[in-house]
Design a protein around this nucleic acid. Structure first.
Length: 444
RNA sequence: CGGGGCAUAGCGCAGCCUGGUAGCGCAUCUGGUUUGGGACCAGAGGGUCGCAAGUUCAAAUCUUGCUGCCCCGACCA
């Protein structure tokens, strides 16, 4: 992409309404714009990040054996009456009437609809376990939307639903998702800590929140510092592995303020390892048994000819919250640096030349070359001042820059990884370097 | 929903107290100079001052009502 043809409305100053750094940065770097309280448009740069995150999440779901489908945003009130949640959900649910005065709603979650789909189409234990998911927009009429896309009303969520014949099998599905979440957040370069959680309106008896530590987080958390050192790289989806990693995490104390128990905390955790800080919830998993399958009368036949309600779980990741969460976790007050797995462009070429001079031509050649090699570059071909270009690219956080100016010889390119020193490289060296970086990333 | 605040050009703000028909910086457009860390000169465009009513010869400014947005709390991916 050439910047002169792109849509990247950058703001030099922080809009007054943005109070936390992720919100400020997302507005300033032209990622999002607010259209109403808690409702946002995603501009091209923000959309690229969002889509890239979505793809990482999707890839890990697929690897865990979940199968993607797509349910609508608008649902009929009928199924919610059946499960009993039409009244329970209260004002947070956006209710709509159509022209025939039929009651509809903008889905805040999809347990009812997926159970309906399941019950209409699955009858046998032979089809279990079954794990289905979708990535779709949700609406929750929050009492107080705030912090940009962090707590907004319309948001993109990945929600997965598992169906199993019995509790043991259901717990395996739960553990699979547990692992999948660790791997997903690892790829997003986030240190996510699973914590035992309240089940809330979804109900059930087993639940974990995945929380990243950040001063601006909405919940207070208490944990053992040892949790921060648990290695989550290169985990496979085999049962041994899953049990091992889960037991590692369960060994140490962690809780949100809701579940926090001071006595246990003091007893279990050495003074020097006690950490009391704030966190952002980026994922939440639940096992809730037959809560929905029972109320909505979903049955399957077992091997010995009985009819039973399947055991269910649901698993959410706040996809549209993640760009903000990643900024909160990674922005160091000087520059933003996107993880290579989700960066909106793989490399920025900053041309300091004028239209049609040699520097411009050299920049353009490199641009075409990188493009051919699938290294999705963005070329700043505008006639802005150099300093303004540097500031803008530091702001939008593309992790690698190639700067081309008059100081360099013909086959010299200034290569810079954000936060590190400049190097002078040749064209081939740049390609090789970038291919290495991004290929390694794709393998994980 | 309770408490607090704000609303003037795309963004950041001044003007309001003491009423006289709107201004600054950045951004945008034109011409020229400049080009390695937010440049310079000259010119230009852009606002029914959130909406409505009232007071007044006259309202961005005073009064009342409404709406929107932000912050703190209870709720959540």
């Amino acid at each position: 992409m050439k910047l002169s043809n792109y849509f990247l409305p950058i703001l030099k100053e922080n809009p007054a309404e943005a109070k936390i750094k992720s919100h400020q940065l997302m507005l300033r770097s032209g990622m999002i714009r607010q259209s109403a309280s808690g409702i946002y448009s995603w501009l091209p740069l923000g959309l690229k990040v969002l889509k890239n995150i979505e793809n990482v999440v999707r890839d890990e779901q697929n690897k865990a054996g979940a199968i993607e489908l797509l349910m609508p945003t608008i649902q009929s009130a009928d199924i919610w009456k059946e499960s009993g949640r039409y009244d329970d959900y209260g004002k947070e649910m956006l209710r709509i009437n159509d022209r025939h005065e039929r009651e509809l709603l903008y889905g805040p979650t999809n347990e009812e609809l997926i159970t309906q789909i399941f019950k209409d189409n699955v009858k046998s234990y032979k089809n279990l376990p079954l794990i289905l998911y979708h990535i779709q927009w949700k609406f929750r009429d929050e009492v107080r939307p705030r912090f940009g896309v962090m707590r907004c009303r319309e948001f993109l969520m990945k929600d997965t639903y598992s169906f199993d014949e019995d509790k043991v099998s259901a717990e395996n599905s739960y553990k699979k998702m547990f692992l999948s979440y660790l791997k997903t957040f690892e790829r997003l370069e986030l240190k996510a800590i699973p914590m035992k959680a309240e089940t809330g309106p979804i109900g059930g008896d087993l639940s974990h929140e995945f929380i990243i530590l950040a001063d601006t987080g909405e919940s207070e958390v208490f944990l053992d510092k040892n949790l921060l050192n648990i290695e989550t790289k290169n985990l496979d989806y085999n049962q041994k592995n899953i049990d091992k990693i889960i037991s590692k995490f369960s060994k140490y104390y962690s809780a949100t303020d809701e579940k926090h128990n001071i006595e246990e905390f003091e007893k279990q955790v050495d003074k020097k390892n006690q950490l009391n800080t704030r966190g952002i919830e980026i994922g939440h998993i639940f096992y809730f048994g037959d809560k929905y399958s029972k109320s909505m009368k979903a049955f399957i036949n077992t091997k010995d000819g009985k009819n039973i309600n399947p055991q269910m779980g649901s698993y959410g990741i706040g996809v549209s919250r993640l760009p903000a969460a990643i900024i909160e976790a990674k922005y160091n007050n000087e520059y933003m640096k996107w993880p290579t797995s989700i960066t909106p462009f793989k490399v920025a070429i900053i041309s300091l030349g004028k239209n049609e001079d040699n520097i411009y031509k050299k920049s353009n050649d490199l641009y075409e070359f990188l493009k051919k090699n699938n290294l999705d570059p963005i070329l700043d071909d505008t006639s802005e001042n150099p300093s303004s270009k540097f500031k803008n690219f530091d702001l939008i956080g593309i992790p690698f820059q190639v700067i081309i100016g008059s100081k360099l010889k013909d086959n010299e390119y200034e290569f810079k990884e954000l936060g590190k020193d400049k190097e002078i490289l040749s064209k081939d060296q740049i390609i090789n370097r970038l291919k290495e970086i991004y290929a390694i990333d794709q393998q994980s």
